[in-house]
Nucleic acid binder design. Structure first.
Lengths: 259, 259
DNA sequence: TAAAAATGGTGCGATAGCGCACAAAGAGAT
DNA sequence: ATCTCTTTGTGCGCTATCGCACCATTTTTA
């Protein structure tokens, strides 16, 4: 893979790369666009590699680009005054970052932090708005995605209210796994705890249970899922609700139809 | 007030009424529309009175109308498999019900239940879509509202994770108060507990504390807020975040500008 | 290769909230 | 005025989670 580093004024860690292995269609939203639309923006899609921990958007910051993850996973979360944090939703290759650009607010009170380093295609905000304002397939797709994201956020709220740490961990692992090509995630218990807004020890205990049950195995910063359906049966209904709603709203059949 | 009861196939409790006292501009979204747009839909806005407990939308149900509350308050919530429930967001005169109509999904996994009986203006789904698809002020306003609603849902998630019942009660009282003309809400502790997804006894205790502190006073199904700023200082930051974001996105100045 | 840092395991007391049972106090109905 | 139903108050044991402290092990750095 040929990697080209580019000086970047605001955020030096982001690196523009070129690669034959990458294709915009690795992002499922870009893949769902009609060829005509994708061709129109293809030359302006810039492949970037983004490392773990990078902050893509800050609370109140202005958006320069929208990001379509391919291999990266980004966590939307809120940072409280006392420093505690809670994840609101995750975004991977099924989604896009920066919806407030076309929703009209241009920013949100939340943060977007990279949870799994990897690649995204990005598009200049102005170009995204241009395409959105054609009020065609791009607009319809983005609005459908936004609705699916709302379901994910809603279930986060429900799950935070009613479900145990173990159930939430199962949900979170499954949602993350759906965005990865392998069944191994590179992630410390501390980081997962931060996502779920619980103590690290709580994750240690829940993950220990899952390992003893043979559903996962882990070693320092690596979790391998051994039994996916076992995890599903141990997760709360929230995972199923979110997954089903994403499928309903964003399957090819659904997005092909006009609304 | 002259009240006209109308036979209504699906939901007999909803009553179409006519009244000189009512004005679409009592709903702040309708009030924010340019005169030209409002005139176009004015004749199709139907004033309806909706009683406490009425279910406006069910999980998976098809939308016939969008509803713009004036005096009613509607709770969006999710009903779990075991019968427990949790509020995702509330909608009053600042909002609209039925956004999934124009977002493209036409339904959601959640329910919309009337929390405070009152009036809404409703508009046939087809007409709303027609106006939305002009891609003009109506569309921009609806998308801005949707973004504000997402912030409310997000803060519900954060609040459920990190804040005490008392803090959540303060937040909820303040958000509800902002949608009412008086400082008294008609609401049993049991109902509030259902909204927040906690035990009724938890509300009894928290409300008792607030009453002893002189911030509210209550009697069987009626809560009067005596000290609004006292409640605000006792609430978590979530209330402020939501309120500020609604103001930012939906103040007249913001909505007048094109995005 | 030694030191330092990161990561995960474990124990323990504190606490917020739950589930349940039942009593007390309004408010409406007869 | 009495009865009944709804609503609120209270007590009690239970559980999940928290906050903290400390150790062991693995990985990285010097």
């Amino acid at each position: 893979m040929f990697t080209l580093s580019v000086a970047y004024p605001r955020n030096k860690k982001i690196v523009v790369i070129m690669s034959a292995q990458h294709d915009p269609k690795q992002n499922r939203l870009l893949a769902a666009l009609p060829a005509e639309v994708l061709e129109r923006i293809a030359d302006d899609l810039e492949l970037v590699s983004i490392p773990l921990g990078e902050v893509l958007y800050e609370s109140g910051g202005q958006l320069q680009h929208v990001y379509f993850p391919t291999t990266a996973i980004v966590s939307l979360h809120y940072l409280m005054e006392n420093g505690a944090s809670a994840e609101i939703a995750g975004v991977g290759n099924e989604g896009v970052l920066g919806i407030s650009l076309f929703m009209g607010g241009n920013t949100t009170p939340s943060l977007a932090t990279v949870q799994t380093g990897g690649c995204c295609y990005r598009l200049k905000g102005r170009l995204m708005l241009e395409e959105f304002n054609r009020a065609g397939p791009m607009m319809r797709l983005m609005l459908r995605y936004t609705q699916a994201l709302m379901t994910q956020i809603s279930q986060t709220a429900v799950c935070n209210r009613h479900h145990s740490i173990e159930q939430q961990l199962c949900r979170w692992l499954l949602l993350t796994l759906d965005r990865l090509p392998t069944n191994e995630l590179t992630m410390t218990q501390e980081l997962i705890a931060g996502m779920l807004g619980v103590r690290r020890e709580g994750i240690t205990e829940a993950a220990g249970n899952l390992q003893r049950a043979g559903l996962i195995s882990y070693r320092r910063g690596h979790i391998t899922v051994l039994d996916r359906s076992g995890l599903e049966s141990r997760a709360c209904e929230c995972y199923g609700v979110v997954k089903k709603e994403f499928h309903r709203l964003l399957s090819d059949a659904a997005t092909a139809k006009e609304h």
